[in-house]
């Protein structure tokens, strides 16, 4: 199961990067970046998984005394929670800049913006 999650995550990262590098439309590039972002999150959560263990929530099924031996690593999950929120912020910023570019130039095609090209 871990291998499946890891490979899915890595495949999503590659897919997202490929989309971001080959598409010329800004909206498609932004979508591609969010796909790569999702892939990174999947990989991080998969790394925190330990076989045969349960979610890091203590209740009747996972008594406090046995917690360390029964739950998976909670740290990557906390990290991914942060990453999701920051990813949302980055996506919102990219969309806002794409919108400004569209307002200024009437185009969302990256090849129309040549000022920074060398």
């Amino acid at each position: 199961m871990i291998a499946l999650a890891l490979f899915t995550g890595f495949a999503l990262i590659l897919l997202g990067l490929y989309g971001a590098l080959t598409n010329r439309d800004l909206i498609r590039m932004i979508v591609a970046f969010t796909i790569a972002d999702t892939g990174v999150n999947v990989v991080l959560v998969a790394v925190g998984y330990l076989p045969g263990r349960t979610a890091p929530i203590l209740d009747a099924a996972v008594p406090v005394a046995e917690a360390a031996a029964r739950v998976i690593d909670p740290v990557p999950q906390a990290l991914v929670l942060t990453a999701i929120v920051i990813g949302l912020g980055v996506t919102a910023l990219m969309l806002a800049y794409a919108w400004r570019l569209f307002r200024a130039r009437g185009s969302l095609d990256i090849s129309d913006f040549t000022e920074l090209k060398w």
Binding site: I57, L58, A67, V71, P74, V75, Q77, A78, L81, T82
Partner: peptide, 8 residues
């Protein structure tokens, strides 16, 4: 009880 919330 939720370790993730405790960490965060």
């Amino acid at each position: 009880p939720n370790l993730v919330t405790g960490i965060i």
